[in-house]
Amino acid sequence: MRYLLIICTDENTTGALGPEEGAAMLADYTAFGEEMGRRGVLLGGERLRPTSDATTVRVRQDEVLVADGPFAETKEQVGGYYLVDCKDLDEAIEVASRIPGARHGTIEVRPIWER
């Protein structure tokens, strides 16, 4: 069963980290990735550039509408994701709870729409 674990954090907080804190966070993510890789649940995952680099695209009446910024202004923003393969929701919850960002942000666990 595949789940997308969407990491939502306040990028103002993560963006304001000092070099040491930033390095520590990176090390935490590396450790998480290695451990989950060994366990065989990790199918993929990336960190995203901040929403200041985001662009939204809509098509309305055949017209492509391009705008700056994320699709919604929220307190927390999507900062990255992992695609995992878990036995069930309990395992997905357990994996999500170990993502470093879960300690200050929110992880949304979304089952992949399987055909």
Binding site: M1, E35, R38, R39, G40, K87, D88, E91, E94
Partner: peptide
Amino acid sequence: ATSYGDYGDYGDPPDRY
């Protein structure tokens, strides 16, 4: 849908499962 009890394939970490 899933079968219960069978947590062997969770692998590590043994401290949780």
